[in-house]
Amino acid sequence: MDSFNAVVQVLDSTIRLSVPLLLACLAGLYSERAGIFDIGLEGKMLVGAFAGAAAASVFHSGFIGLGMAILISVAFAMVHGFASITHRGNQIVSGVAINFVAAGSTIILGQAWFQQGGRTPALQPGERFEAIVWPGADALRDVPLLGPIYSELISGHSILVYFAFAMVPFTWWVLFRTRFGLRMRAVGENPAAVDTAGISVAWLRYRALICTGILTGVAGAYLSMVQNGGFVKDMTAGKGYIALAALIFAKWRPVNAMFACLLFGFLDALSIRLQGTPLPIVGKVPVQFMQALPYVLTVILLAGFIGKAIPPRAGGVPYVKER
C-alpha cells in the first residue's frame, strides 16, 4: 500500500508539473500551426506570471490577476506578430528578443513596484486559485485503490488545471473541426493558397498569435498564482523551451501534446522524488540526467530515430504577397 501511495503521489505531482508545460505547448501549437515559430513562449509565460501575481496582489482578486496575465501576454504576442507578420522580421530573432525583454522587465518592474528583490508580495487566500475539492473526495479517501486516485489525482486541483486539460480536446476540435482551424493549418502549410482564396494571411496569423498569448498568459498565471504563491524572478526556468520540445515531440498534435507534456512532467516529478535514492539495476542516477532527459529525447526524435517530426511547411517563413 505504501508503494501504491507513492505512485499516486508521483502521478499527482506529474499533473501539477505538466500543466504549465501543457498550456505553453498548446499555445505554441496555435502559432506554429499557423506558420509562426515561437521561441518566445518562455518570455510570454514569464510576463504572464508577473502580471498575474502583481495584479492579483494589488487588486486582491485572482480573476483580475488572470485577466491581466492574459492581457499582457497577448500584448507580447502582438509584438511578436508585429515584427514577424507585419514587418516580416526573423521570427526566431523576434522570439529571442521577447524572452530578453520579459526576463529583464519583470525583475526591474517587480523591484521598482514592490521592493522585494524582484518578487511580488505573497498572495493571500482569495487572491490565488484554490484547489477544488470534488464532492465526496474526503469520504472516499480511505477506499482502497480507487479512493486515493479519486481524491488525490482527480479531485483537489485548481480550476486552471482542469482548464488546461479541457483545452486539449477543445484545441483538437478547433484545429480539425472548425473553419478557423482548417484555415489556420492551411496558412501554416501554404499561405499563398490561402491568400489566393481571398483570406487574409496576416489576420489569420495574428488571430493564431492571440490564442497563443491567451494560453501562455494562463500558463504564467498558473505558475505564479497556483503552483507558487507569488512571482519569483525567472520562475519559468526554461519551461517554455521544454514546452517547445514537447510540441515537437507531439508532432504538432494536441492529444500527443498532452501525452508529451505528461511524460516530461513525469520525468520532472520522478527526478524530484528519486533525488539521491538508488534505483534497482542501474544504481544511483544523477538528478541532472533526469533533468536533461526531455531535451535528449527531443534531439533523438528530431534526428528521426523515433518516427519523423515534420513541422508545418511554411513555419518560420514570412509571407510576401506576390506581385
Binding site: 509584438v79 515584427a83 530573432v93 529571442v96 528578443a97 521577447i98 525583454v101 520579459a102 522587465s105
Partner: peptide
C-alpha cells in the same frame, strides 16, 4: 537584459 532584448528586437 531589457536593453539587450530591445536591441535584438
Amino acid at each position: 537584459v531589457i536593453i539587450q532584448g530591445l536591441v535584438i528586437l
